[in-house]
Design a protein around this nucleic acid. Structure first.
Lengths: 244, 244
DNA sequence: AAGTGGTCTAGACCACTAT
DNA sequence: TAGTGGTCTAGACCACTTC
């Protein structure tokens, strides 16, 4: 699968973001949109699209009639739920050296819930991958992914690469591009098995995600459950008025 | 505080959303952007902005070169974390008759954590409001809000209106417009007090939000903690590639 | 080849903030 | 009143899907 060049808007966004983190806007004030447009030689629309993305991710805020400003609080937020795409990346941003261990890896019959979620017939084959993500040898995340076996282009070839991030695995071996997840947030008390794999005491409370991943054709391509150690990783989210 | 007229884009968004829920696009295919623009007498940009919002909230999906389609799965998602603005609204969308009970309501000295989060001096006065939200007489959400007392325009007048949704209270009595929350998602086992107020057994697991609300000047105006009964209300979120 | 969404431009006018 | 972000228009060209 191929990737596209970054758009002008994304280049502008990266440029401004860089100037922000380098603290080039000492008073916290970002130049007017018209000025930025002229300086960078692009239209004001392109500038506005870039600023909209930066505002959405909490790097800046805008006040109509007043100006655009650096959001010092927003810049410091880590582990934003909406931005998560691979747990390796989360742990890396978290400041540790992440690693992955594949605990199990097999083709088996889907149970009723998973089959229904993936629009499969009851008992259809799925590839089940259980992984644990560690930072500095300490387990942080336990995941269990189930991918319809029918999606595998070459069932034999995939062995040994189940350590890839899920979205890479799907692009590489299923020719599917993972576009979004619908995730359910569930509080849990870890059972004996989960606690052992996560290195905590049985009954410790944690967060679980039960989620379904969709591809470029809006088809469900993976059912995932993930368990997190709250003492090592805590998620945040920016909730905005009106869904802007 | 005054409110603004809905923009053309928002009117277009509502119009298309209505046609979607009325199932007017039987084959799941939404007309081309150029057609919509001509039919509604607006520019393609306005159409695109409206469609972008609908895509973001999961109502539609778009495939470059192919078209725009109704997202049947996305339409059914309830209790989306990013869209929450008042718990009354959440419970109403959830299909029950919501009610609110104010458990306590007093001016007291902020503890260290709250004072730091709200940029107050240690021990500064805050208005503390404890509320429980019920659906059909069953408690679902327990909240504890702390607002700097210095923000209250008329400390005497506010009594008796602490049952208002927080954003309304802040607009009405503090002249602050709540723009966004930064929320931390925490798994908890309810203690005796929380369990009693939520009508569950001590030790039941649930989700808590620890959050900070910011106003139009990007100032922190409220510190809030909320506890949810997982058996009655479960949150979902759409996590997208790249933060689009 | 035809059709559709994605990106980008140039410019107009409005709403709001600050002074 | 001047300056800034917010909304909207009209049109060009590109990237991709479908037939």
């Amino acid at each position: 699968m191929i990737t596209r060049n970054p758009s002008l808007t994304d280049q502008v966004k990266s440029h401004i973001k860089e100037r922000i983190v380098n603290d080039e806007f000492a008073d916290g004030r970002i130049p007017p949109e018209a000025t930025l447009a002229e300086d960078l030689g692009v239209s004001r629309t392109t500038i506005r699209d870039a600023l909209a993305k930066l505002e959405h991710e909490g790097a800046i805020y805008r006040k109509q009639g007043a100006g655009t400003f650096v959001n010092k609080v927003g810049l410091q937020i880590k582990s934003r739920l909406e931005e998560i795409w691979s747990y390796e990346q989360v742990l890396q941003d978290h400041g540790y050296a992440p690693s992955v261990k594949v605990l199990s890896d097999e083709i088996l019959a889907a149970d009723a819930e998973v089959a229904a979620a993936l629009s499969l017939e009851a008992g259809a084959d799925v590839l089940a991958i259980e992984k644990v993500f560690l930072e500095d040898d300490e387990p942080v995340v336990l995941t269990h992914n189930r991918i319809p076996a029918a999606l595998l282009e070459d069932p034999g070839r995939k062995r040994g690469r189940d350590d890839l991030p899920l979205y890479e695995f799907l692009e590489e071996f299923c020719d599917r591009r993972l576009m979004y997840y619908v995730s359910e947030i569930v509080p849990v008390a870890f059972d004996a098995d989960q606690a052992k794999k996560l290195g905590v005491k049985k009954g410790t409370v944690g967060i679980a995600f039960i989620e379904l991943g969709f591809d470029q054709n809006n088809e469900a391509v993976v059912h995932a459950t993930s368990y997190f150690r709250d003492d090592l990783l805590r998620f945040r989210i920016i909730r905005r008025r009106s869904g802007a």
